[in-house]
Protein backbone atom coordinates (compact mmCIF):
# COMPACT_ATOMS: atom_id res chain seq x y z
CA UNK A 1 0.00 0.00 0.00
CA UNK A 2 1.51 3.29 -1.06
CA UNK A 3 0.11 6.61 0.10
CA UNK A 4 0.46 9.74 -2.02
CA UNK A 5 0.61 13.36 -0.91
CA UNK A 6 -3.05 13.94 -1.67
CA UNK A 7 -4.10 11.02 0.54
CA UNK A 8 -1.99 12.32 3.42
CA UNK A 9 -3.55 15.77 3.00
CA UNK A 10 -7.01 14.19 3.04
CA UNK A 11 -6.34 12.17 6.23
CA UNK A 12 -4.82 15.25 7.88
CA UNK A 13 -8.02 17.16 7.11
CA UNK A 14 -10.11 14.33 8.57
CA UNK A 15 -7.92 14.40 11.70
CA UNK A 16 -8.15 18.22 11.92
CA UNK A 17 -4.38 18.35 11.87
CA UNK A 18 -2.58 21.12 10.02
CA UNK A 19 0.35 19.61 8.11
CA UNK A 20 2.58 22.09 6.24
CA UNK A 21 2.71 21.48 2.48
CA UNK A 22 6.45 20.68 2.55
CA UNK A 23 5.90 17.88 5.11
CA UNK A 24 3.27 16.06 3.04
CA UNK A 25 5.70 14.26 0.69
CA UNK A 26 8.10 13.02 3.41
CA UNK A 27 5.11 11.90 5.51
CA UNK A 28 3.66 10.04 2.53
CA UNK A 29 6.99 8.20 2.24
CA UNK A 30 7.14 7.31 5.94
CA UNK A 31 3.52 6.20 6.12
CA UNK A 32 3.91 4.12 2.95
CA UNK A 33 6.87 2.38 4.59
CA UNK A 34 4.84 1.64 7.71
CA UNK A 35 1.87 0.33 5.73
CA UNK A 36 4.14 -1.80 3.53
CA UNK A 37 5.44 -3.40 6.73
CA UNK A 38 1.89 -3.86 8.05
CA UNK A 39 0.96 -5.69 4.80
CA UNK A 40 2.50 -8.89 6.22
CA UNK A 41 -0.70 -9.33 8.23
CA UNK A 42 -2.33 -10.52 5.00
CA UNK A 43 -0.30 -13.75 5.34
CA UNK A 44 -2.52 -14.71 8.28
CA UNK A 45 -5.75 -16.55 7.59
CA UNK A 46 -8.33 -14.86 9.79
CA UNK A 47 -11.45 -16.41 8.31
CA UNK A 48 -13.98 -17.19 11.05
CA UNK A 49 -11.85 -15.51 13.72
CA UNK A 50 -13.91 -13.32 16.02
CA UNK A 51 -12.25 -9.86 16.32
CA UNK A 52 -11.01 -9.14 19.85
CA UNK A 53 -11.89 -5.65 20.99
CA UNK A 54 -11.16 -6.12 24.68
CA UNK A 55 -8.96 -8.41 26.72
CA UNK A 56 -11.22 -8.28 29.76
CA UNK A 57 -13.18 -11.45 30.30
CA UNK A 58 -15.55 -9.68 32.61
CA UNK A 59 -18.85 -8.31 31.40
CA UNK A 60 -18.83 -4.56 31.68
CA UNK A 61 -20.70 -3.59 34.81
CA UNK A 62 -23.86 -1.51 34.80
CA UNK A 63 -24.32 1.30 37.25
CA UNK A 64 -27.33 3.17 38.49
CA UNK A 65 -28.22 6.11 36.24
CA UNK A 66 -27.97 8.84 38.79
CA UNK A 67 -26.11 12.10 39.29
CA UNK A 68 -22.95 11.49 41.33
CA UNK A 69 -21.38 14.92 41.29
CA UNK A 70 -22.12 18.48 40.23
CA UNK A 71 -21.78 22.06 41.31
CA UNK A 72 -18.17 22.10 40.17
CA UNK A 73 -18.41 24.48 37.23
CA UNK A 74 -15.31 26.34 38.43
CA UNK A 75 -13.29 23.11 38.23
CA UNK A 76 -14.68 22.23 34.81
CA UNK A 77 -13.76 25.66 33.45
CA UNK A 78 -10.46 26.05 35.31
CA UNK A 79 -8.27 25.18 32.32
CA UNK A 80 -10.20 27.08 29.61
CA UNK A 81 -7.53 28.20 27.08
CA UNK A 82 -8.63 31.82 26.73
CA UNK A 83 -10.28 31.96 30.13
CA UNK A 84 -13.88 31.04 30.78
CA UNK A 85 -16.86 33.36 30.96
CA UNK A 86 -18.80 33.00 34.21
CA UNK A 87 -22.49 33.79 34.46
CA UNK A 88 -21.96 35.14 37.94
CA UNK A 89 -18.31 36.10 38.52
CA UNK A 90 -18.91 36.19 42.28
CA UNK A 91 -20.02 32.54 42.24
CA UNK A 92 -17.97 30.61 39.70
CA UNK A 93 -19.78 27.37 40.49
CA UNK A 94 -23.02 28.94 39.28
CA UNK A 95 -21.93 28.11 35.73
CA UNK A 96 -20.24 29.58 32.72
CA UNK A 97 -18.95 28.72 29.26
CA UNK A 98 -15.94 28.27 26.99
CA UNK A 99 -15.47 30.63 24.07
CA UNK A 100 -14.63 29.75 20.46
CA UNK A 101 -14.50 31.80 17.23
CA UNK A 102 -17.85 32.67 15.70
CA UNK A 103 -19.33 29.64 13.88
CA UNK A 104 -22.39 31.28 12.28
CA UNK A 105 -22.40 34.24 9.94
Amino acid sequence: MSLDKETVARIARLARLKVPEEELAPLAGELSGIFAWIEQLNEVDTNNVEPMSSVSDVTLPMRADKVTDGGIAAKVLANAPDGAVYIDPSDRNAGGFFTVPKVVE
Partner: peptide, 27 residues
Amino acid sequence: DLTELYENTRGAGFGKETRRRILIGTY
Protein backbone atom coordinates in the same frame (compact mmCIF):
# COMPACT_ATOMS: atom_id res chain seq x y z
CA ASP B 1 -13.06 29.82 12.08
CA LEU B 2 -13.56 26.85 14.40
CA THR B 3 -12.13 24.26 11.97
CA GLU B 4 -9.00 26.31 11.49
CA LEU B 5 -8.70 26.74 15.27
CA TYR B 6 -8.78 22.93 15.62
CA GLU B 7 -6.27 22.39 12.82
CA ASN B 8 -3.86 25.10 13.94
CA THR B 9 -4.00 24.00 17.58
CA ARG B 10 -3.41 20.33 16.82
CA GLY B 11 -0.79 21.02 14.16
CA ALA B 12 1.21 23.20 16.55
CA GLY B 13 0.52 21.25 19.74
CA PHE B 14 1.38 17.68 18.70
CA GLY B 15 4.93 16.54 17.96
CA LYS B 16 6.07 14.57 14.95
CA GLU B 17 5.54 11.01 16.26
CA THR B 18 2.12 11.85 17.71
CA ARG B 19 1.04 13.42 14.41
CA ARG B 20 2.30 10.35 12.56
CA ARG B 21 0.27 8.01 14.78
CA ILE B 22 -2.86 10.14 14.57
CA LEU B 23 -2.59 10.00 10.77
CA ILE B 24 -2.06 6.20 10.76
CA GLY B 25 -5.03 5.78 13.08
CA THR B 26 -7.29 8.08 11.12
CA TYR B 27 -6.40 6.26 7.91
